[in-house]
Write a protein that binds this DNA or RNA. Sequence first.
DNA 1: GCAGTGCTTGGCGGAATGGCCAAGCAGTTG
DNA 2: CAACTGCTTGGCCATTCCGCCAAGCACTGC
Lengths: 108, 108
Amino acid sequence: MDAKTQARFDARARVLKALAHPSRLFMVDVLSQGERCVCELTEMVGADMSTVSKHLAVLRAAGIVADEKRGMQVYYTLKMPCVLRFFDCVSEVMARSAAEYVEVASIR
Amino acid sequence: MDAKTQARFDARARVLKALAHPSRLFMVDVLSQGERCVCELTEMVGADMSTVSKHLAVLRAAGIVADEKRGMQVYYTLKMPCVLRFFDCVSEVMARSAAEYVEVASIR
DNA sequence: GCAGTGCTTGGCGGAATGGCCAAGCAGTTG
DNA sequence: CAACTGCTTGGCCATTCCGCCAAGCACTGC
């Protein structure tokens, strides 16, 4: 794997890492339906606001969401709706994995 | 976020986490062109075989690849070709991120 | 200005991840 | 059986991630 190839896969992995957390996936899902302020997302996720803010910073750094301050609130929007397509594939993987778990369980 | 929703996003995150590493993405890419034994992948990735083996175990646990022992070698195959679709979207994210980096750099 | 709200950042402890080396294990070959 | 190959597993260390609390910062309103 040469340096150029390495760099390309590093970049891809960075985006996937940004998405690879349940709370962040949930927020992306919520934001696909429209912008939300941090307070709303905090409420929905059910974690400390500082935690949610840091998750949003991760998504922002990856270019997946953008923030805009309006008045006292900061609104986040989904910049990469195409990431939603991930879910279709992931669901497929999940369905098979679940089936295998059942299979393994029944063997035991 | 109720327990059921939590479980769904946990499951999705698990698959994304399995993919969120440069070496693992590279191996998925290689496997999309056909099966490979661990020794070949080790050679291509350029890491210790034990490291590669552990990465493959992560992909296998997520249901993304499958292994089959034939003779002295273990061959891995891609079970979820749909994960390749991720890359199109990731490329798009990368292109925009790169553009922003340039922008930020030029401002400095 | 000062108190209050909304958000971000710093910091800390605990958990998970990733890499290598070494040891173990299965299958092959002499 | 003994030596060898291909792979996996255990263990260790360094690094990163993740959650909360506390502090700081920006804007609003009294």
